[in-house]
Amino acid sequence: MDKRVFFPSKTVPLLLLLPQLVITLVFFYWPAVQAVVMSFQMEDAFGTTSEFVGFENYTAVFTDPFYYRAMGVTAVFSTAVAFLSLSLSLLLAVMADRDIKGAGLYRTLLIWPYAVAPAIAGVLWYFMFQPSLGLFARMLRDWGIDWNPLLNGDHAMILVVMAATWKQISYNFLFFLAGLQAIPKSLIEAAAIDGARPFRRFWTIVFPLLSPTTFFLFVVNIVYVFFDTFGIIDAVTGGGPAKTTTTLVFKVYADGRLGGDLGGSAAQSVVLMVMVIALTAIQFRFIERKVSY
């Protein structure tokens, strides 16, 4: 039966939509338009004077060698975080989905980190791996590893990847668990009767049936890595040492807030916005085809 409701005029539906539309316009579209406008201007930090400079900010962005370096850093960082957080949370979800004692407790504990603010998560990891105070840093040093994220770029990158991954695992876990629980038990049991081992059952039945969830999470994770990891990077490394952990979004912040270059920062964020839109479009166009709903 068709449950569609018909309104006599357009006023009522518009009124009902209005709050959401207003929120979207005020909090999403208006700032985005502001960013585009600012990206064509050059002004001092206080905004007392501003000058229209055309595409000069964009030219500056694309001729800045550090911008390309930040792109490289972002590529490494996002691939590592997306891959690790997706695979680890899938593993955890598969483990927690079994009938074991205290499954509810494990699940709750695994979801907890999601409630931790990014900056707090960053500080937590910073302290654990701080070369002279950190518990784990001392352990690594005792094993003869010269752990020093203050000077060694690879160590700093490993640290922010770990923190960002840890923060995202809970979210992915939640969706994977729901996805797993939606898979009909009968399919798996049938395969088991046919003699398929657990690993084979997972690859041929569970993983393909989970693909819509995986795809959704993949898109969400990429957006997360591009935008939301800024707090973690700020707290753990501040983009250092020598810009080895300066991602595109952190550069937007550093140039705009710390450097007072609002025009250049706005231009970068517009470019970043276009990049993420393009990336998401590509994902939907090409990867989604492989998804079986």
Partner: peptide, 9 residues
């Protein structure tokens, strides 16, 4: 600082 870090590394 970044340049100093690069030299020290």
């Amino acid at each position: 600082s970044e340049e100093i870090e690069a030299a020290l590394a």
